[in-house]
Structure formats: structure tokens, C-alpha cells
């Protein structure tokens, strides 16, 4: 193992050297939920700043954060906060993750358009994904077993939903799909399916209906595509979307992030179907001089 570690260190050393040679190459890696968004941001930014190269790849939030900890990328896209285990690994590697909020997402629960269910409570969503509610008739639908579609464990959305809504284990019957689009396609084809995807994907997906979610029965249910309600914090499963960098952002990385946070960058966020950064998170970004 020692040898392979040394080999990896040598490799990443080479990568750093290669990076130094062409100083303007920025590697961005991580969340599949925001890959399209960040790619769009990078495209526009590169058009305005010829000579800068930004490469954006997916793989999941966990993959991105692991790559940042191992110093294989400059920016990690993540749809969940970094967890304790990852923080510990970062500290061991001498990496200080800084969190920047680049957009806001209302995680959307989708079902087939043929499904009469239009509203669920946050707790019902949790019970459905834990496998405790097994039939649509238990939540006011027709008598059909519920087919679960979710993400693979390297997905930040998987982690976010588990942490914030399930507070327990996912049902082992859940089909784990490769990304938001694959979930949307599966739910579109399956009359008894349910899935969770980023609001940017939900707005674009055809053939699925987006459920309204409320905190508990009787409370007003909110749609994830109702912007004022989401921005005022009324949608129960909304989340900030992050980029993590090592230490304080500087140089090209900082310039790119500043572009993402600018009015122009935030316009792209809205065009991709996500929401601009709420005021409370702008203050957090300001810590890094952004």
C-alpha cells in the first residue's frame, strides 16, 4: 500500500506541475445535479476570457469532494454539505475546504402524470423512501405498489435526502439510477414510480408531474417551481448548491467563482432552472471576499 500511495503522490505531483505549466487550466469536478449549470457558466466565462480553460466533469458530489481532498481538482461541485468523515480526511491531507454557495435548489419530487397524487408531506416522502409506505393508496392514490427511483450513493442528492428527509436508511428496493435525467425518464415510463431530481431538471422534464410538498398535513403545500415561495423558505426540501475550494479562492478560480456569483452568472442559474442565491447565503460568501 505504501508504494501505491507514493505512486499516487508522484502522480498528483506531476498533475500539479502540468497545472503550473499551463497556469490557466481549472479542473471542476463533482455533482451531476449542477454539472450542466457549471458547464454553461464555464462556457460563457471562457468566451469572455480567452486563454482560460475550465474543464467541468461530473461523477457525483462525493467524487468531487474526494477529488478536491486528494488535490485532483481545484473546485468541487456539491449538492450537499461536506460531511465529518470527509472533513477529517481533508485535514489529514492538509486541505482546508471553503464552502461557496453558487445557487439554490428546490429538490423536486416527481411522479408519473397518470398518478392522481399531487401533494405529499415531507414525512410521507421520507416514509416512502424508507420503504415504510409501500402502496400509493396509503397516500391518497390508487392501489398500486410504489416503485422507488433514486440516485447512487456517490450522489449529493442521495446524501441530502437521507440526511434531511429520511433520517434513516433508503429502502433496499430502490432502483439506483445514474443521474437526474435517467430518473425522470424512468418515472415518465412508470405509472407507479416516484423520483427525486433537482428543480432545474424537473422544469425541463416532460411527462412527469412535480408534487407540491408541505411540512405536515393541513399546512399549505408549496410547489418547487413557485419561486417566491421557495425563496422565502416555504418549500420544505430546498437546499443551497455548493462549490468547495481548498483555502481561500484566488487567481483564476476566484475570478471564475466571482463570475458565477455576478448578476450575469446568476442569470444563467435561473436559465438553467435553479434559483439565485438567497440573501442569507450571500453573507457567507462574503467571508471569502466574493
Amino acid at each position: 500500500m505504501k508504494y501505491s500511495t507514493k505512486f499516487m503522490v508522484a502522480l498528483s505531483g506531476l498533475a500539479v506541475m502540468a497545472g503550473a505549466a499551463s497556469a490557466e487550466m481549472v479542473q471542476v469536478k463533482g455533482s451531476d445535479t449542477i454539472i450542466n449549470l457549471v458547464q454553461k457558466e464555464a462556457e460563457v466565462y471562457m468566451q469572455q476570457n480567452p486563454g482560460v480553460k475550465i474543464s467541468v466533469t461530473g461523477g457525483g458530489s462525493g467524487t468531487g469532494i474526494a477529488a478536491m481532498i486528494n488535490k485532483q481538482c481545484a473546485i468541487a461541485d456539491s449538492s450537499r454539505a461536506i460531511n465529518a468523515k470527509e472533513l477529517e480526511a481533508a485535514t489529514t491531507n492538509g486541505v482546508k475546504p471553503s464552502r461557496i454557495v453558487i445557487a439554490f435548489d428546490a429538490l423536486s419530487i416527481i411522479v408519473n402524470t397518470g398518478n392522481p397524487v399531487k401533494v405529499l408531506t415531507k414525512d410521507q416522502v421520507g416514509a416512502i423512501y424508507r420503504g415504510e409506505i409501500k402502496n400509493w393508496s396509503e397516500v391518497g392514490g390508487s392501489d398500486m405498489p410504489i416503485n422507488l427511483y433514486g440516485r447512487q450513493s456517490n450522489s449529493g442528492t442521495y446524501g441530502f435526502l437521507q440526511e434531511m428527509v429520511l433520517k434513516g436508511n433508503y429502502s433496499s428496493k430502490m432502483n439506483t439510477m445514474n443521474g437526474n435525467s435517467q430518473i425522470a425518464e424512468a418515472v415518465k415510463a412508470d405509472p407507479s414510480g416516484i423520483g427525486y431530481i433537482g428543480v432545474g431538471y424537473a422544469k425541463q422534464a416532460a411527462g412527469v408531474s412535480i408534487l407540491d410538498i408541505n411540512l405536515s398535513n393541513g399546512q399549505p403545500a408549496v410547489s418547487p417551481i413557485d419561486k417566491p415561495a421557495v425563496m422565502s423558505g416555504k418549500y420544505p426540501i430546498a437546499r443551497p448548491l455548493y462549490q468547495y475550494v481548498n483555502g481561500s479562492p484566488a487567481g483564476t478560480v476566484k475570478a471564475f467563482i466571482q463570475f458565477e456569483l455576478s448578476a450575469e452568472g446568476q442569470k444563467i442559474v435561473e436559465e438553467e432552472g435553479f434559483y439565485e442565491i438567497p440573501a442569507e447565503y450571500k453573507d457567507a460568501n462574503a467571508r471569502f471576499g466574493l
Binding site: 457525483g60 474526494a66 450513493s153 429502502s171 433496499s172 428496493k173 439506483t176
Partner: peptide, 26 residues
């Protein structure tokens, strides 16, 4: 790729190779 014990050929399965490929990255 569902984690449960496979029930039938028409149900989802998660093989050893897929488990390694999905999880080793993170």
C-alpha cells in the same frame, strides 16, 4: 442497481463489479 437480495430475473440487481465501480470513487 437495487441493493436488496434479487427476487427474480425481472427485478433489479446490483452486481459485485457495479458496486465497486459506483463506490470506490467516493
Amino acid at each position: 442497481n437495487a441493493a436488496e437480495f434479487p427476487g427474480s430475473f425481472l427485478g433489479p440487481v446490483k452486481t459485485m463489479t457495479a458496486t465497486i465501480a459506483i463506490e470506490l470513487g467516493e
